[in-house]
C-alpha cells in the first residue's frame, strides 16, 4: 500500500503526519517512509537510526564544445526551457534550467553538445527497526525537483518494494513535483488547516487529485482554530475527513525539538489511530 501525504498549502503538517504515522505503523509492520520534498527534506530530523546507504544522484546536461560549433542556432530553437541560448558565436548552457530532454544534443548537426553527468542531489537510506527512511536532498541552486523525485521513487521500488506500507512525504503546492510525488501511489492524504488559506489551497489540491483520478481523503490539522468552512466543503463535496488533529501548543514545542508527538500527546495518538485504521481498511480493500 502506497500513500502520499500532500497538502496544497505549505506548513499544514505533512512532515508531522508522515513521520508520526510511519513510526506508529512500524510498531506492527514493515514501513518505508520516503521524503520526496527534495527541496527541503526534514523527515530525517525526527529519526536517528543507522545510515545503510548513501549515493549521489545525477542528471544529464549538454556541454558545449566551441571548436565543433557552427553557431547554427538549432539547439536554441530546440530548447523549450531557455536552458540553451545563443549569443553570436557563443552558446550559453544553464544547467539548472535543463530538463535533460537531449533535444539540443540530438539535433546538433556537428555534435557540439554532448550530454554529460551533473550531480543534482544526494539520497540517504536510514534504517531503524521496522522503519526505513529514504531521503533525497536537492543540491542548492538546482531548480528541477522532478528528476530527483523520479530517481528516488526508482530506488525505493528497486530495493524496498517488499515493505507492506509506503508513506511518501510530498512537497507542498500542486505543481509538477507534487504530481511526481503522488502519481504512483494508491491513496493520497491531503492535510490542511481549518482556515481560509487552508481551504483555498485544499480546493486546488482536491482539483489536482480529481484531475489525476486519485483516491484521497482529508486530515485536518490544528483543529480548533479558524472556522468550519473546511468541514463544510468536505461534506458538500463528498470528501472523507479521516482525522482531526487538535491545535495544541505542545505540538509546536515537541516538533521544534525533533520529537514524535504520539508518544507524548494522547489526543494526537487518538487521532493517529483513526488514520491507522483507515489505512488498514484500505489495505484490506486493496488486497
Amino acid at each position: 500500500m502506497k500513500i502520499s501525504i500532500a497538502s496544497g498549502k505549505g506548513g499544514t503538517g505533512k512532515t508531522t503526519l508522515s513521520t508520526n504515522l510511519a513510526s506508529y505503523l512500524s510498531q506492527n509492520l514493515e514501513v518505508v517512509l520516503t521524503d520526496l520534498d527534495v527541496e527541503e527534506p526534514n523527515s530525517g530530523l525526527f529519526f536517528s537510526g543507522e545510515i545503510v546507504h548513501k549515493e549521489d544522484k545525477f542528471k544529464m546536461i549538454p556541454e558545449w564544445i566551441e571548436d565543433k560549433c557552427d553557431a547554427c542556432g538549432i539547439c536554441q530553437n530546440a530548447c523549450k526551457f531557455n536552458a540553451v541560448l545563443q549569443f553570436g558565436n557563443f552558446i550559453s548552457v544553464l544547467p539548472e534550467l535543463c530538463h535533460s530532454c537531449y533535444a539540443c544534443s540530438e539535433l546538433c548537426p556537428t555534435d557540439a553538445l554532448p550530454m554529460i553527468t551533473k550531480k543534482m542531489g544526494e539520497l540517504t537510506h536510514k534504517k531503524m527497526g521496522n522503519l526505513s527512511l529514504i531521503e533525497s536532498r536537492l543540491t542548492i541552486g538546482e531548480e528541477q525537483a522532478v528528476p530527483l523525485i523520479k530517481q528516488t521513487n526508482i530506488y525505493v521500488k528497486k530495493y524496498l518494494s517488499s515493505a507492506k506500507i509506503h508513506i511518501f512525504d510530498s512537497p507542498p503546492g500542486t505543481s509538477c513535483p507534487v504530481i511526481e510525488a503522488t502519481k504512483h501511489v494508491n491513496f493520497v492524504i491531503l492535510i490542511t488547516e481549518p482556515t481560509p488559506f487552508g481551504l483555498h489551497d485544499l480546493k486546488l489540491a482536491v482539483d489536482t487529485m480529481r484531475e489525476m483520478k486519485k483516491d484521497f481523503g482529508v486530515v485536518i490539522n490544528r483543529f480548533g482554530i479558524g472556522n468550519d468552512e473546511v468541514i463544510n466543503y468536505c461534506i458538500n463535496n463528498g470528501i472523507e475527513i479521516i482525522a482531526k488533529f487538535p491545535n495544541d501548543r505542545r505540538v509546536a514545542e515537541l516538533y521544534s525539538k525533533g520529537e514524535l508527538l504520539y508518544l507524548q500527546i494522547p489526543e494526537f495518538a487518538h487521532e493517529l489511530e483513526k488514520v491507522k485504521n483507515y489505512i488498514y481498511d484500505l489495505i484490506e480493500e486493496f488486497e
Binding site: 526551457f81 531557455n82 536552458a83 541560448l85 550559453s92 544553464l94 534550467l97 531548480e143 528541477q144
Partner: peptide, 12 residues
C-alpha cells in the same frame, strides 16, 4: 508562461 528561465530569455 515560463515556469523557469524567464530571466535568461529576457536577457537574450
Amino acid at each position: 508562461a515560463d515556469a523557469h528561465g524567464a530571466g535568461p530569455k529576457t536577457a537574450h
